[in-house]
Nucleic acid binder design. Structure first.
Length: 320
RNA sequence: CGCGGGAUAGAGCAGUUGGCAGCUCGCCAGGCCCAUAACCUGGAGGUCGCCGGUUCGAGUCCGGCUCCCGCAA
């Protein structure tokens, strides 16, 4: 039985930990996860999904603010004897220092939510949707000093669906990864597969997202914007400014290029809120959420917010 | 007690210095057109979130409560 130390935090990580726990070839000796974080309007502390899962199975959990704290943690150091066979890291949220990578005999194995070397970085699922990729997948690889740069152990493809949001796709990829990980790990530890170098020339990177990334640039085409709305659902979300408030855009639909306004112009298309985008394209806002309000259909929104169209733009829209 | 917005007809909203409860859409009935997100006429539909206070009179002012949401982390 192989002794595993698991690093992970999110909902994406949890199914992977679950798969390892249930596999009799492995023993998860410790789980390292992020500290409980304040969440919601009243900033209550919420434990991460991986912690809840580990506790349910009685596995020792570590939540260091900094990894370095583990060096001085007697409880942690005791678990290292005998030496763990391998470490697994899945969306942990922090970079592991070299001394951790050197800890287990077989190093640290990572599950990444893309087909590496495409979409190295922190937001591979969002990047794949935003880019309009037709397929994506999960990659099992060995961690090295550079981000998502280590040699590959296995990959599994997943076909993208036209309605895919990051939330939905992430769940499917987590299931894929959770199925692939124990199998691959066993083969690797039994030396049935060897890590193979990535094709570094083909590497493409994606960045860490912030809420500001969700601000819509109307100069982009309606296809790009529609993909962005799905890519950033449920986080960080897409939005536009409307007066001094924000309007969240929860669902959008591409419309025929039939309006002669400049990019960013708001108008009505059969009573539905629409915006002119780049290169003559048009997008309809199907579901929106004004600040301080619940989500609503575009039609309902324009019924109440009758200044959706400004005066000048209204004249233009009546001419079309 | 992190900052802030909100609750009024089935939906989305307006409601001024307190003085008859409104708009757009939907719904029902009738009419009209080759046709339309149609259009015209009429109609139904409200305990203005809850409790208390001020007042001749409160959707509106004051106090408390419940619920929903945006931001931040």
């Amino acid at each position: 039985m192989f002794r595993i130390i698991f690093f992970g935090t999110s909902d994406f990580a949890a199914p992977h930990l679950d798969a390892l726990i249930r596999d009799p070839s492995f023993q998860v000796i410790a789980v390292v996860t992020q500290a409980d974080k304040p969440v919601g309007r009243h900033a209550e502390l919420k434990p991460p999904p991986v912690k809840l899962l580990a506790q349910r199975f009685g596995i020792t959990v570590f939540q260091p603010q900094k990894i370095a704290e583990l060096k001085d943690d007697a409880r942690f150091q005791n678990l290292l004897n005998p030496r763990p066979d391998v470490g697994v890291i899945v969306s942990y949220g922090k970079i592991l220092p070299q001394w951790i990578l050197d800890l287990p005999a077989f190093g640290i194995v990572n599950v990444h939510a893309s087909l590496l070397p495409r979409w190295r970085g922190a937001s591979p699922i969002q990047a794949a949707i935003a880019a309009g990729d037709r397929k994506t997948g999960v990659t099992v690889m060995k961690i090295d000093a550079e981000m998502d740069h280590g040699p590959l152990l296995a990959t599994e493809e997943e076909i993208m669906r036209p309605e895919d949001t990051a939330g939905a796709l992430s769940m499917r990829l987590a299931r894929r990864g959770a199925a692939l990980l124990p199998k691959t790990l066993a083969e690797y530890l039994n030396k049935k597969i060897l890590p193979t170098e990535q094709n570094h020339a083909k590497a493409i990177y994606c960045k860490i997202l912030t809420r500001d990334d969700g601000k819509i640039d109307w100069n982009r085409t309606s296809s790009e914007i529609e993909r962005l709305v799905r890519a950033y659902d449920p986080w960080p979300g897409t939005w536009m400014e409307l007066g001094d408030k924000r309007l969240k855009i929860l669902k959008a639909r591409i419309r025929p290029n039939d309006a002669a306004f400049k990019a960013g112009t708001r108008f009505l298309w059969k009573g539905r809120p629409s915006v002119k985008c780049g290169q003559g394209t048009v997008i309809e806002l199907e579901t929106v959420q004004p600040e301080g309000k619940i989500p609503m259909s575009g039609e309902a929104f324009t019924r109440g917010y009758q200044n959706w169209i400004s005066l000048k733009e209204k004249l233009e829209s009546e001419m079309v």
